[in-house]
Every structure is written in structure tokens, then in C-alpha cells.
Amino acid sequence: MSTETAAGSSGSGSGSASSSVNLESVRAVAKKDFQDAVRSWLFWGLSVFFFLLLVGVTGGLSYFGAEVSPTQAETTGALVSLVSQMTRVVIPLIALVLGWKAIAGERESGSIKVLLSLPHSRKDVLLGKLLGRAAVLSLSLIVGFVLAAVVVAAILGSFDVVEYAGLLAMAILYGLAYTSIAVSLSSMTKSTTIAGAAVFGVFLLFYAVWNLLLTGLQILMSRGTIDGVEYTRTFEMADGTTEQITAQRVPDWALFIDSLDPGNAFANALSIISSTVEGTTYPDYYFPDGMPFFLEDWFSFIILLLWIVVPLAVALWRFDRVDL
């Protein structure tokens, strides 16, 4: 390891390990990567998948809807709510599968030398790859959603463009976050096996481990390892008297950690656009002095943006410094 770090710094004293970004180069790499993907079954397969998902759920709603929940059946809101729950799991899977080989695969096969023999910087390659893969997911989402819109409108009779487009936009943002995570991880290693294990680990992290974190923090709080926050809840009894109960909840930072899960952020941000989507909600009595800004729904947009920017920034920094 020591030689690798030495290599980065001693080669030429001018800190040349940091490469520049050229937008023309990024575009050329992204275009090539997208062409490569469009030629495979993947792009059209994904478009068809999203189309069928939307049409299928709509069909199901109109068929069973009236029996299940007559008040909100057969509306765009119900569709958005159901589809968002599915996409919450499906989009990470697709994005991780699309991205895990993006760089590691080319390093393993050696074809990255074809890319980097041309006048592209390593940052250009990383950004271009991310854009290319994100374009595959985003465009297939758009194709699927737009084509399905006609069918959905015909089945439902009415159609709320804002909620539908809102779901599409959030799905794209959510997909971009996971694509950034996948492509960034992919640039960290030469081995597709390690890259695959890493993205699988990320999926497990947010679908198994993260949900346990809050429970774990609650246990730590009840044992007194971390300090909880006292709150008072007022009950109104049947006879008109009130009774107050004082209890403990986990501190704000623990709730913030819970909200960092991209899936939670996706749901929370979408709940702003669609009233039928349920994000994470806290009772008012948790925050007698008002909710901290970082737990409000709008902050989930920032969290999703951070999930795009932070992994990418780390990857851009590191990818410039490794031997291919």
C-alpha cells in the first residue's frame, strides 16, 4: 500500500494526480456507454417493465379497487402510492445492477485502456459512465411512463398529471442516487466480484440493516447508553379531563440517521407531491418547539442530492489516484 500512495505524490511534485473535466469528453464517453446499453436488451426490457408495472397496477386498481377501498380507488393518487412502494425496492435493484460493472468491468477486461488511450481524463470517464448509465434508467422510466400514461388515463377515466409526473421525476432522482452509489463503488476496485459484493452490501444495508438501526438506538436509549429526549403527551379522557404522560423518544440525530436511507428520502420527498404517499411522520408532541429543519420533508430532496454528490466526489478523488 505504501508504494501506491508514494506513487501518487512523488511522481511529479505538482499534484498532477488530479485530472481535469472536459464536458465534450464526458459527453463522448456517456454517448458511447449509452449506445452500448441501448444495443442490449436492457434498455427496451426496462422500458417495457415500467410500462407493464404502471398498466398492471392501474388495471388491478380498476378491477379490485372499488372493493378494497372505495374512497380512493381508481385515482392517480392510489396509483402513485402503490407504484412508489414498488419502485422504492425495484429502482435500487435496477440501478445497482446497471452500475456495478460500469468501471470495474472495464478495468477487469482491460477495455478501460481503450477509453483512456483517447484524450479523456479519468474524471471524464467516471462522469460519462454515470451519465450514460443514468440515462439508460431515466429514459426507460420516461418511455415506460409516457406510453403507460395513455392506457392509465383510459382505464382511470381521470388523470392527475402533476402527481404522475411527480412520481416520474422522483423516480429519476432516486434512480440517479443509486446509480451514483453503484458507479462510484464500481470505480473503487478492479474486480467485478468485489464491486458486485459491494453493491449487494449496499442493498442489504438499506433493506435490512438500516431498518434495525432505529430499533437498536431505542434499545441503547432504554439501557441508558444514549440520552433520549423527554416529551409530554396530553390525553383527553372520555369524561373531559386531561391526563399527561411523559415518555422518552430517541434524539433528533437518531431520527435523522433513519431519514438518511435513500428509500425513506424518496418516500418523504414524494409525500410532498402526492398526498396519498406516506412518508415518515412524527407526532407533533415529539417536537413541542417545532421540528428541526433536517427532519422536514423538503430536506429529503437534499438527502437524495447528497446521495448523488457524496459518493461521486469520493470516487472522483480516488479514481484519479489509482493504478488502473
Binding site: 458511447k32 449506445q35 452500448d36 442490449s40 477495455s111 485502456k113 488511450s117
Partner: peptide
């Protein structure tokens, strides 16, 4: 300003 023929070339199969 350089043309490179890398070693053990891998082409892009679908292009």
C-alpha cells in the same frame, strides 16, 4: 496527439 493500440485489446461487443 498520440494514437494507441493497447495490449490485449478488448473491443465493445455491442458496438
Amino acid at each position: 496527439r498520440t494514437g494507441v493500440l493497447p495490449e490485449g485489446v478488448e473491443t465493445y461487443d455491442r458496438l
